[in-house]
Design a protein around this nucleic acid. Structure first.
Lengths: 336, 336
DNA sequence: AACGTTTTCGGAAACGTTTCCGAAAATAAT
DNA sequence: ATTATTTTCGGAAACGTTTCCGAAAACGTT
C-alpha cells in the first residue's frame, strides 16, 4: 500500500510540512487562505493523516481498549455498544479484545493494548484466576482504567457495577413468596465479587423470612455449565424445589436437561435466571430473569473513563452502582 | 504513562540502539553473549517493544482488521473466534470493528483500520447499501482482502461463502416432503448475494417437485424484523402453511408472535430457521435450522488472508464454499 | 520613514523503532 | 607478522507526524 503523506502535499504546494500540519490542526496560526488551499489539495490527493505517526509523537492514540471475557452471551456485546456510543461522540476509537475467560489471555490482551498506546482501558475480569498485579501496576502508572461488572476488590479505580446484592435478594424473595423453600443458589466463580454479593443477597432474603438457606453451588456462565450441573443434580437425585441460576444461559441449559428428564418447569422445579437475555421471553417456559441495564453499564463505564482522561492526573475513583429489574415470567410462577 | 524504550537499555549497557534492536530481532549478526546480556537487562527494566514505532518504520503492523455487521447474533462472534485461532498462531493480532449494519460506518471502519496499517482485512458486508468503490480501490492498491458470507459480487478477491443455494434447496425440499405447499420465503436484504442464492434454491426445489412457489419477502436479521413480519402477516390475514426464515432470530421472533396470537407451531405454521443458533434447540418448539460451520468459516477466511499475506504481490482470488447441515426439529415436523 | 506588533510561516528536533552502511574487532589464511 | 576474511557493532537515516523556536512578512503607530 502506498500512502499519501504530509510531505507529498508540502512538496506539491511548496510549503513546509509544518504548515500542512497546521492546516489540519486548526489550533495554530495559519492564514485561512493557505489553510483552504492545503485542505483542498489534500482532499484532491486523497490524503489521510497517519494515526500511527501521530500516536508516536503525541504519545496518545485516541483509542480505548475494551476487554471482555466472551461474547457469546449477548450481555457483553450490548455493553460494548453502549460504551462505543459515548466514546465515538468524543472522537475515540474502540479496540475490542476477548479474553476467552482466561486470565492469561486477558493480561496479554491488556499488555498489547497498552503497547499500542490506548489512552484508557475498560475491563471486565475473566472468571478464572485473579492475578491483579499488572492492573495495580497500571493504576500506579496512571493509566486510566475502568472495570465493570466483574470488578476486582482491592484496586483503587473507577468501577461500574450492578447491584447484585439487591437483585439476588429480590429474586430470592420472589421465589420465597411463591412458596418455595428449598432454593438452590448457583453463582459464578468464587473469585468474582458479584458472586459474593449475590450470595449475601440470597442469604439475607432467607434470614428475613426466617427460613434456612438451600444448597449453594458455583459454575461458569455458559449453557454447557448449566447442562452439567443439572445432570449432576439428577444423577445424585438431589432435586431442589427452586433454582436461582448464575445467568440465563446457565438457566436455559438446566431447563433443557430437566425437561428432557421429564421434570416440569415450574411445577417440579422453578427457575430464575440472571442478566436477561433476549431469549428469556422466547424459550418455553418463558424465563424469569433479573434484567441488567447492559447498555447503560457501557455508557457509564465510558463516561467514567472520559472523566479520567479529562482531569489527567487527579483521579478520584468512583463506583457507579446501577439498578435492574426482575422480569417475572412462567418459569418461577405456579398458578394455584 | 512512562514507557521504557530501546534507548534506555542502550544507555544502561553502553551499546548502540541498533545493537539492542538486533538483540530482539534475531535475524541480524549479534554475538550471543551480548544478545543475552541485552535481553536480560531488558526484562529487568520491564521493556516492551513499542509496536507503534515498529509499524511506522516497517510499514506493516501484524494486525488484521475484522469488520462485521453486528454481534448480537452469535453467528459473527463464532466466526471471529475461528479466525482468531489461526491468526494468533501466525502472530497476528486481531482488531474487531462493528458496522452496525450501516454501510457508512462500515466504510469508515475500514478506513480507520487501513489508516492504522492493518496488513489485511476480513469483512462481512453490512446489509443495507452497497457502495463498493472503496473496496475496489483497496484491491487495486493490493491490500489483502477477504470477504465472508455477505460477499460482494464484482470484486476480484478471495471469499468464503456458505452454500446458500444448496441448503435453501434442501430446507425447502424438507418442507415439501412434510407435505406443505404454501411456503413463504423470507431472505435477507436483496443486495446480498446470499439472498439471491437462497431464492434460487427455494425456486428450484419447487420446480423439481412441480409445485408453484409461495410468496417471497425480505427482511433484516434481527428478532425484531421477524416480529414485524409476523404481525404484518397476521393483520393481512395472509398466513402461509410454512416459512423458510432469513435466520434463527427472525424465525424465533415470528414464532413468538404466532404463538401469542394462538397459532400452533408446527400444526398451523411450520418454520425453518437459518444459521443455527444455540437457542434453536432450546426454544419451544425446538427450531429446525440450517446449520452453518461458523468456526470453519472464520478459519477459512483467515487462511485465505494468510495466503495473500505470504505471496505478496501475486494473488489469485479464491472462493471457498463451505457445506452445512439441516437440523430437523419440532418446528417443521407434523406427526401424523 | 522608522519603529514596534502581530500574523504567518519555515526549519529542525522529537517520538521509538528498523535497517543500511561502513568501521572496528576478532578470527583465519598466508 | 602481515594480510584477508568474517563477525560484531556503532552511527545515521528513515518512517509520518507534531511542536518548538525563531525569522520573514504584513500591518499599524508615531
Amino acid at each position: 500500500m502506498k500512502y499519501v503523506t504530509i510531505k507529498d502535499i508540502a512538496k506539491e504546494l511548496n510549503v513546509a510540512v509544518s504548515t500542512v500540519s497546521r492546516a489540519f490542526n486548526d489550533k495554530y496560526d495559519i492564514k485561512p487562505e493557505t489553510r483552504d488551499r492545503i485542505l483542498k489539495k489534500a482532499a484532491e490527493m486523497g490524503y489521510r493523516p497517519n494515526p500511527i505517526a501521530r500516536k508516536l509523537v503525541q504519545q496518545r492514540s485516541f483509542n480505548i481498549g475494551i476487554i471482555i471475557p466472551e461474547f457469546e452471551n449477548s450481555f457483553f456485546p450490548q455493553v460494548i455498544m453502549g460504551a462505543q456510543e459515548v466514546l465515538y461522540q468524543h472522537n475515540y476509537q474502540v479496540l475490542i479484545m476477548q479474553s476467552n475467560e482466561s486470565i492469561d489471555l486477558e493480561i496479554q490482551n491488556a499488555k498489547t493494548l497498552v503497547d499500542n498506546m490506548v489512552d484508557g482501558l475498560i475491563i471486565s475480569l475473566s472468571g478464572v484466576g485473579n492475578n491483579l498485579s499488572y492492573y495495580k501496576e497500571l493504576t500506579e502508572k496512571k493509566m486510566p482504567l475502568v472495570f465493570f461488572n466483574r470488578v476486582p476488590e482491592n484496586i483503587e479505580t473507577s468501577k461500574v457495577v450492578f447491584d447484585d446484592y439487591k437483585w439476588a435478594f429480590f429474586a430470592t424473595e420472589h421465589l420465597i413468596h411463591q412458596g418455595f423453600e428449598d432454593i438452590l443458589f448457583i453463582s459464578g466463580p468464587d473469585e468474582l465479587i458479584l458472586s459474593k454479593n449475590r450470595r449475601r443477597g440470597y442469604d439475607d432474603a432467607h434470614k428475613k423470612h426466617r427460613i434456612p438457606t438451600g444448597k449453594k453451588m458455583t459454575c461458569g456462565f455458559s449453557m454447557q455449565d448449566g447442562v452439567q450441573i443439572a445432570k449432576n443434580l439428577i444423577s445424585k437425585n438431589s432435586i431442589p424445589r427452586a433454582i436461582l441460576a448464575a445467568n440465563d444461559a446457565c438457566a436455559i441449559g438446566m431447563i433443557r436437561v430437566f425437561k428432557d428428564s421429564g421434570f416440569k418447569i415450574p411445577e417440579d422445579i422453578a427457575i430464575v435466571g440472571f442478566s436477561e437475555t433476549k431469549m428469556a421471553a422466547h424459550i418455553s417456559p418463558t424465563l424469569t430473569s433479573v434484567e441488567q441495564p447492559t447498555y447503560e453499564i457501557g455508557k457509564a463505564a465510558a463516561q467514567l473513563l472520559l472523566e479520567q482522561l479529562q482531569n489527567k492526573g487527579i483521579h478520584i475513583p468512583q463506583t457507579i452502582v446501577l439498578n435492574g429489574r426482575l422480569n417475572v415470567r412462567e418459569s418461577s410462577v405456579v398458578l394455584s
